[in-house]
Amino acid sequence: MATSDEIMEALADFKEQCNGNKRLRRMQRDWTKVLHYAAVDTGDKFTMTVREGEILSNEKGAAGTPDVIIEGESETLCNMFWGDINPTQMYLKGEIKVKGTQEDIMRIDAITAIIWPEV
């Protein structure tokens, strides 16, 4: 089980890696979304705001109207943001649930594929 602060730490690292990657920013420049992450085991929620491929903020709690909702165990979410697991594989095993479009799921996978190609 991961604490809320641990997930925020992982999200901060994820943001730094995404925003610092020029290739990724170019690829995702038409992606503007509000994403909610929900840890089903702890009940913690987080909001990520992305504008034109740049992660503007990560906040605790569910703020605004989400375009995508991702649910999973806290440990799974944490591992996903640290790049320790492949989110699509988790999705296909039913370990994470994504409420959103198939394109958004592919975008999230594309981000991890660029940052952590070996995952």
């Binding site: 994504v98 959103g100 198939q102």
Partner: peptide
């Protein structure tokens, strides 16, 4: 009933 089941079923 939901989007995720289609891809999971294919798998």
């Amino acid at each position: 009933p939901e989007d995720s089941i289609g891809p999971r079923m294919a798998c």
